[in-house]
Amino acid sequence: MNNFMFGRYIPGNSWVHRLDPRAKLLLCFIYIGVVFFANNFWTYLLLTVVLLGSIILAAVPARIFIRGLRPLFWLLLFTVVIQIFFGAGGHVYWQWGVFSITHDGLVSAGLILMRFVLIILISTLLTFTTQPLAIADGIESLLNPLRKVHFPVATLALMLSLSLRFVPTLMDEATKIMNAQRSRGVDFGSGGLRQQIKTIVPILIPLFVNAFQRAVDISIAMEARGYRDGENRTKYRQLKWRSADTISLVGFVIMAGLVIALRQLT
């Protein structure tokens, strides 16, 4: 688990770290949306420059980003290979049965790879620089308009924040249960598929039962502390929108406009 960097938070106090989570979520959405409009060298160049600029502003070392990409390496390779061999159209360089390498196939493989990498890197940048809690706050605040259609935003936010709070607790518990079962002779990660699935059961069931017990306990504790419903509560934590947020949002909107304009070049 320790080598798994994807989705982690790297503490820091850079320009990007200090941005409002709402702003960062919006920036991320804009960027990912615009990636799908990019279609030529200049648009990708612009997107890459903006991404690299953001990474530099976030002051997160490049090797951590590369470690974040590593678990996705095989997925990337698989998609690219599929695109190369099954892409059709344009000049045919090589052919064998249903497999062929064509000019258009190579181009679309390149595009897909580029898009994948850009999207993964920008979302990694979001999780590296934003605490899960802040992301939850940001999501809640962005969902606020949905209150108008009676969507239970406050309840959803509470559920989100409770789940996030219990992730490390449940991870610890899973490790404890695994070690306890190991000490009784359960052998994890060996044997055939059937055998391996069977060894999951002695982890899963106690974990579920304990989670139910926790849910009961925490709901009693919440009720004892005066929790009635998600609505009508005051909030201790507040998000602050600053000028840096507006500046970066304007910057990304301009970038989006430019990408759509440059799209016409080909």
């Binding site: 919440m222 502390r225 005066g226 929790y227 509560r233 005051t234 201790y236 507040q238």
Partner: peptide
């Protein structure tokens, strides 16, 4: 948390 439930101002 308890104060939020009691509508205490921020």
């Amino acid at each position: 948390f308890g104060m939020e439930n009691r509508h205490v101002s921020r």
